[in-house]
Amino acid sequence: MKSFWALLSRDVILAVREGGAIGTALGFFLVVVSLMPLGLGPDLNLLSRIAAGVLWIALLLAALLSLNRIFEADHEDGTLDVLATGPLPLELVTVAKSLAHWITTGIPLAIMAPVLGILLNLDLAAYPILVATTLAGTPAVSFLGAIGAALTMKTRRGGLLLALIVLPLYVPTLIFGISAVSAGAGPAGVGASFLILAAISLVAIVLGPLAAAAALRVQLQ
């Protein structure tokens, strides 16, 4: 357990000190969302109708930008070899690294989402739900993303390949994330979508590391 915390805190410290990845993700999120009203014109009704979808899609794309650094940096400098011979099984190494990615990317993006909601004239009542759904949905983004990151670890400039592998896996998260926010009509609809979204994240937290660790074992050969 000590090893797990050591790895988790090291990854968080590295992400904060190196900074670039978090900044890029947040900046990309900001730019994509603020381009939307410029492209669609100042139709406030239209904007507030599509706000949830735009925010979720932009969030997924922004998170995608930082996924490749989950394993790539550690592979390049040889750290992954040592982590693999350490006391933690590779599955738990993957959990620690995905969790660190969620803390340093998922949480900042989720906090930033309501701020950008203002730009899209998002319904005021939807703000708490938006924060709750992005917080509950982003673990799936990090843990499923780890699978793609492990598979493309050795590919030079594998960013596009990573997007092709990972984006289809995000479809359930996207569908239920959007429907939880825009189902504002009735509390029953929100509740159901939110619970399914949380369930998807829980499944991703369990299955993502297993798949990513299997991919890492092949890649380390």
């Binding site: 090291r10 590295l14 000190r17 400098d77 040889g78 750290t79 070899d81 693999a84 011979t85 350490g86």
Partner: peptide, 18 residues
């Protein structure tokens, strides 16, 4: 065997920002 071994390869496993 791997878990009882120190493996030092061509790379140093050193993080520049630490």
């Amino acid at each position: 065997l791997g878990e009882q071994s120190h493996v030092v390869g061509h790379t140093n496993a050193v993080k520049s920002s630490l």
